[in-house]
Design a protein around this nucleic acid. Structure first.
Lengths: 204, 204
DNA sequence: TTGACTAGAGAACAAATGTTCTCTATCATG
DNA sequence: CATGATAGAGAACATTTGTTCTCTAGTCAA
C-alpha cells in the first residue's frame, strides 16, 4: 500500500518517539513534533494509516498507537532478501523476529540475516546460522561484514573485508572461494551493509 | 531492593499486559486485572515501585509505565561454574544475563554456558561461544548435551551423546579427543545437564 | 490495650487526550 | 471558470486517567 509523504513522516516520528521514550506519543505530541496545530487533522492521518495497516491503535485509549510491523518491544528483525536500498528501510521484508535486545550484541540497532553459503565455514559460521549485523558502522580492517557487490553478488553475503589505498578485498573463510579484489573505480561497486557483531544458531 | 508480594504481582501483570497489548496498562486497568478497586491504592504501589527503580513512568502522562531494564523480565542466565547439584539451582553463580526470551530457542527454560574447549569444533562451536542448554529434557540419540562425569569431568562440557542397553558413549566433534564409553555401573557417573538448543556468539 | 503502620476503598479534581464537526485555503483538472 | 478533492485549522465534547486526600479495617509490636 502506498503511503503519502505526510504518512511516512508520521511513522518516522512515532518510531523515533517510541525509541526515545519507550511509550507511544499522544496525537497532540505527534502534531507538535511535526509542526501541525490541529489534533483533528493528525487524527485523520492516523486513521488512514490504521486503514492501511501500518499501525494499530486501540479506540478511545490514550497512547496506544503501535507500529504494526517491527515497532514494539526489543527484537532483532531477520531480513529475508536484502535488495537494493539501505538495509532497515521500511520496505525490507522481515521474515522473522528474534525476541532479544540488540544491546546483547553491543549494538543499538541491528538486524539478522540467515547465512546461506559456507563461505565462512572456517570461522565456524554455518549455513542456517543467523548472522547479526550492525548497520552503518565505521569499517575495520579484517572485520567480517555483510556485503553485496553490484552486478555480482545480489544477496547479502559474509566476507572478511580488507582494503588499502588502491583496492578493496573480499575474502572468504573457505579455500573453495578465492578472494575478490576491486581496484580503482571498481571499488564503488562494493556495498558494505554492516559489520558482523554476532551469531545466533538454533539447533533443532 | 526487596519487593512485596503485591509489588511483584503488579510487575507480573504489567509484563503480561505489555506482551499482549504492546502498550502500557492504565492504573485502573492494573487494578481491574488484580482485583483491586481503588486507583489511588494502586497508584501508591506504582509510586513505590518507581522509587525502588523497578519501573519508570512519566508524570501526568497516560499509559507511560515501563519496566526498567528487563526487570525480572525474560533473560537467559549464563552460569559460570556448574558444580554439583542441579543446574538452575539458586546457588549457581550467574556470571551474565542475556536479554533475550528463552522461547527464541524453543525452550520454556534454559541457561547458557560459556564454551571452554574446542571439543565441538567440527560442529562449528568455538571456544567463547555461549551454549544455550535446555535442562531436563528427554535424551535423544546423537544429541549434543552439556555433561559432567563424576571424577573425570568437573565442569560442564559439550558432548554428543549416544547409548544402548549396555553403555553410554560421549563423543567429541574433534579427532583430538577420543570418545569415552561407560558400561554397566559406570553409566551412573554420567550426568546429563541438558540438551543444546542453540548457540550465541558475540564477535568483538 | 494502645499506637504506629499498612493495604485498600472511595470520592473528587484537573488535565490530557481521542474523536467529531465545521470551515478555509490550495491546487489540480476538466 | 467551476468543481471536487485534500490538507490543515480551530473549536468543542466526552472520557480516560493520573493524582491527591480522607477514612476504615486489619496487623503487629510494645
Amino acid at each position: 500500500m502506498k503511503l503519502t509523504d505526510r504518512e511516512r513522516s508520521v511513522l518516522d516520528f512515532i518510531r523515533s518517539y517510541l525509541k526515545e521514550h519507550g511509550h507511544s506519543p499522544s496525537v497532540r505530541e505527534i502534531c507538535k513534533g511535526l509542526g501541525l496545530k490541529s489534533p483533528g487533522s493528525m487524527y485523520k492521518v492516523l486513521s488512514s494509516l490504521r486503514r492501511k495497516g501500518a499501525l494499530a491503535m486501540e479506540g478511545g485509549k490514550r497512547r496506544t498507537v503501535r507500529l504494526k510491523k517491527w515497532g514494539n518491544g526489543p527484537a532483532i528483525p531477520v531480513l529475508g532478501r536484502i535488495a537494493a536500498g539501505p538495509p532497515l528501510a521500511a520496505s525490507q521484508e522481515i521474515i522473522d523476529e528474534l525476541p532479544c535486545d540488540p544491546t546483547l550484541f553491543g549494538a543499538s540497532q541491528c538486524f539478522g540475516v540467515v547465512v546461506k553459503g559456507d563461505s565462512m565455514i572456517e570461522r565456524h559460521i554455518s549455513p542456517g546460522d543467523i548472522a547479526i549485523i550492525e548497520p552503518s558502522t565505521q569499517p575495520v580492517q579484517g572485520m567480517i561484514a555483510a556485503v553485496m557487490v553490484e552486478g555480482i553478488i545480489h544477496e547479502a553475503t559474509l566476507k572478511i573485508v580488507k582494503w588499502d589505498d588502491e583496492s578493496i578485498r573480499l575474502i572468504s573463510a573457505n579455500p573453495a572461494y578465492p578472494p575478490m579484489e576491486f581496484r580503482g573505480e571498481e571499488r564503488a561497486r562494493v556495498r558494505l551493509l554492516g559489520r558482523l557483531v554476532g551469531i545466533i544458531r538454533r539447533t533443532p
